[in-house]
Design a protein around this nucleic acid. Structure first.
Lengths: 253, 253
DNA sequence: TCGATTTCGAGCAAAAGCGAACGTAAACGA
DNA sequence: TCGTTTACGTTCGCTTTTGCTCGAAATCGA
């Protein structure tokens, strides 16, 4: 990783002006456009700047691109799963909605439910359900994770322990053939486990892409779930296990 | 996904004005109408704006009219007070920011502070400071109040008790002549008291309109404050008391 | 309701900007 | 001293952006 003496200067100018142009910087430093382009490419790779045609701007921050993409992934399936899941959430009950794009889709489908008490550790969900005035929203505390608006950490777990939910809606990063729910993020696992422990029923919303993926941390067995909402049939072995455990599978589309 | 210099600027203008016109932007940037149309289309596709004939507006929904009005009230004074307050918050410290439009203004002035740890019970502040990637954000739990994005209740207080802040920034509904801080909302009073108890220094941000108003619930004496940021001199008697207590008054504008 | 006017979006060509490949020169280390 | 590394400049296709034109759609006024 090369560090030229220009990089700090470029960042300083960007902070002051809000943006920098390739041409302007080339003149300022007395080098060619190509050299500046190389600088900007490196700074963009280090997430210090965001590259645009003709120059660069400060990182937008406002939204996380990766997360936005994830939200748009497989959108129709997510919508259908969310609708099916929301249909099984009766009005007037207490619900926990966990971090994740699938659970956010469920939140959108709950916009017209009445008399809910929704607890969530997901800032996006709180923002979505603000529009449903017939629903009490409780936000768990925690450290805000910029990548997805999630609240995580001990504070989160402590808050969740103070409740008992009728229904919890969770997502996961992957499901393995033994029927274990897996996640990429250790921090999130602790939260998910606490959620399951504090709920009478637990719904999993996860599309088929989770079947063929794996992740390092184990949340729980699917035995702990009441219902799984998904968009393609589970692998046969897994489906049989779920049948034994009494875990219902709801297939949409 | 394409990006241009104009996108962040357009969003900023839209946030300030509430709307943008194709023609106005074309003139502002010195490009043709078609180019602006393309920009607006892209921003609308990314859900940053909502397209209308002749221009674009902010995405509908989440706005609370009454609260928006309150936010716009006495805007210049708020900005100046916020700037003065932020100037007294050193980088690298831990700060609590309470509910209120004035504290939100302070949050906006903290967007370029580095290495802060910000704890807040105000969803709006969390949303604002997401853009400062050099700042850890911790959200207290609590029941979400739709009117102002505040988190209140026992959960909030319990979370706050787990911290000790270098600086707390609070607002209030009124200040009476005896030097007491008052609030309309009983729930919020408990939170404010806890905040004061858990902080080494406490800053109050309150414009002159609070002098001539009254409210039913007592938060604390101004003796508990380190500094008051305001826009007009305090009534003489109150100023004298503050001098005795060692409560500094910072007058802006 | 029906035209007149404005605004919109698609298609196309010109211009601006881009990255890759290659060459040169200075700095560096043994 | 020589080979290696690193930074920078130059050239050249390729991509993206932009402005223009034109028919369609939306809005406005009567």
């Amino acid at each position: 990783m090369s560090q030229t003496f220009r990089h700090p200067d470029i960042l300083k100018i960007a902070q002051r002006e809000g943006k920098v142009t390739v041409e302007g910087l080339a003149e300022h430093f007395g080098v060619t456009l190509q050299t500046i382009r190389r600088d900007l490419t490196e700074l963009a790779e280090a997430n210090k700047l965001e590259r645009v045609h003709g120059g660069a701007i400060l990182p937008s921050g406002t939204t996380n691109i990766e997360y936005d993409e994830r939200r748009n992934l497989n959108q129709t399936a997510k919508l259908a799963m969310a609708r099916a899941c929301a249909a099984q959430i009766p009005e007037g009950c207490s619900v926990f909605l966990n971090i994740g794009t699938s659970t956010e889709a469920v939140a959108r489908e709950l916009l017209h439910h009445r008399d809910l008490m929704v607890v969530t550790n997901n800032m996006n969900i709180a923002n979505i359900l603000v529009d449903n005035t017939d629903c009490q929203i409780i936000v768990t505390g925690g450290a805000l994770r910029r990548s997805d608006g999630g609240l995580v950490g001990n504070i989160t777990i402590d808050t969740i322990r103070q409740f008992k939910f009728d229904i919890a809606v969770i997502g996961c990063s992957a499901m393995d053939e033994d029927g274990d729910l897996l996640d990429f993020d250790i921090q999130e696992v602790g939260v998910s486990q606490t959620i399951i422990a504090q709920s009478r029923k637990c719904f999993l919303v996860a599309d088929h892409s989770k079947f063929s993926r794996t992740a390092p941390a184990r949340i729980a067995s699917m035995r702990a779930l009441s219902t799984v909402f998904t968009d393609l049939p589970l692998p046969r072995e897994l489906a049989e296990r779920c049948a034994t455990w009494g875990t219902q599978i709801v297939l949409v589309d």
